[in-house]
Write a protein that binds this DNA or RNA. Sequence first.
RNA 1: GCGCCCGUAGCUCAGUUGGAUAGAGUGUUGGCCUCCGAAGCCAAAGGUCAGAGGUUCGAAUCCUCUCGGGCGCACCA
Length: 589
Amino acid sequence: MKKHVEALITSSLEQLQNTGKLPQGIEANIKVERTKDRKFGDFSCNVAMILAKAAQCSPRELAQSILDHLPPSSQLVKAEIAGPGFLNFFLEAEAYHDVIGDILKAKEKYGQCNLGQGKKVLVEFVSANPTGPLHVGHGRGAAYGATLGNFLSEVGYRVHREYYVNDAGRQMDILATSVWLRYLELLGEKVIFPRNGYQGDYVKDIAQQIQKNKGNALRHSADAIFTPDIPTDLQEDGSGDKEAHVDALIQKAKTLLGASDYAYIHLQGLNDILNDIRQDLGEFGVEFDEWFSERTLTQSNHLDKAIQQLKAAGHTFEEKGALWFRATEFGDEKDRVLVRENGQHTYFASDVAYHLNKFDRGFDFAIDIFGADHHGYVPRIHAFMKALGMDPNRLQVHLVQFAILYRGKERLSMSTRSGSFVTLRELRKEVGNDAARFFYVMRKCEQHMDFDLELATSKTNDNPVYYIQYAHARICSVFRQLAEKQLTWDEQQGLQNLTTLTQPQEDLLLESVSRYSEIVQASAINYEPHIMVHFLRDLANHLHTYYNACQFIVDDAPLRDARLCLISAVRQALANGLRLLGVSAVESM
RNA sequence: GCGCCCGUAGCUCAGUUGGAUAGAGUGUUGGCCUCCGAAGCCAAAGGUCAGAGGUUCGAAUCCUCUCGGGCGCACCA
């Protein structure tokens, strides 16, 4: 439909160029848009205003010329000039009818297209440290990433979803040490748990499992651990150093346990938490094609190779015993350490290796979805890509802002380390998966968001999730009624009688549902699933209005079949849209 | 101090990349079930788009500054 209007304008413009009224070679991309108001017709175009200068006449004058050269079209009722020079197109009602047939024919495939041309894209998201359960902050990234993946794949990209598992760093050592200390507690050792350790109860659960498997084989006395050479932990009065304290305990664990036993605890913790995360996300409808381990980068030499590449390109230098990347030459605000004085590589080094690896795997482009607190290292990733001669546009970073939880007016605090955070699992349990997925993507991702638990759980108040699901369920209910009345729906006859749909509510609903595939594309190419959310709300509204105004199951069979075609198409669009959002389209509620 | 995100109705947010009279939900007020599901519909009221300049036919949108909020600024991850 939209394409048809575009074709008409293009044809007219070519005519004008051939007759010399427009200069050759100006290639303004013609933008045909849905009108904001029905009184402006169905589609509008601003090309006359844009090209007025080049044509050396007023916008309205040019608009008139364009109108004069429009080729005839059976779908067009009229086209007129409005305001400063808009071209407004009024279409025959029949122009919308094809959409109904298309939807009913394509069913759950309706809305798919080949915009992405099969290009391979890697979407990395969540990637939370496996040091504890996911909390509500991770939930937004999970919902957004999964939904974005759905949209990209719907418009023809080959999407690879990936979770980067930070299984190699200091945080994991802190976890392993925390587990070990809890284990010793279980055996009756008098340990003083470090402030900087992981406090959550899940650590005790892992310790218990280890005790079950290993008995007291990993036991060492508290006296042997808390020796005088360990720096004191942070005290109430502010003295001491919690970082130095925990680092010393890690060293102690490694030496006392030996490499193999330490690795056992480390792995036990990692596996337990990763399994928990995997299950949590699975229940949330978030699946990954790959869980990419940071450790494999070191084991497979990717990390060394990456560092060598930067070295070879001459973008590194040594200072104070460390190896640095000259990031400032590529737009970053400071240079970054790759290898520390103690010989250990930094997180940034493995990130370089990881992103190099992504592109080595043959992806056309990659998308990183980070929490907003990570925005600081977008420039440094782009910096090393530039340093190695890669096009930084091949990596797009989307920052997801935090969600602030409210219960009614009360703001819920979230402190992670203390263990008093709200987990994603708790949230899902309280509000349900559908509402959680919906609320997370309801807002633009870079928008700060208030997540009101009370609103999300309300079934009586106006909850947007239920509002849309209700529209779907209502249509299903109509078809149940039809069966109860021993009536059937003749789809073919309905399609042939769509001209009987002359009610104003039918007009509006038809117009609304015809936008569906445009909305899928807009959501995908802008990386903004919330566009779909707002559309579905709007579509549901038109359905409810129609429902209140007209009876669908009427005696007049052709009219009845036509109306059932219309609402059946609406049901399909609602179902497809909800599926992309990861929300279920229920048949009754 | 420097950088990133943001500021739109009482509240929560849209505004399709510069278009027409700035829109929804919620809240407030008033209507609508003998009828396919009232978790619904309709109507009214509600605005200096944080503020000030600038760019042009035209700005909530782009540029500069100011104010206000969130988040970053490690040889941590």
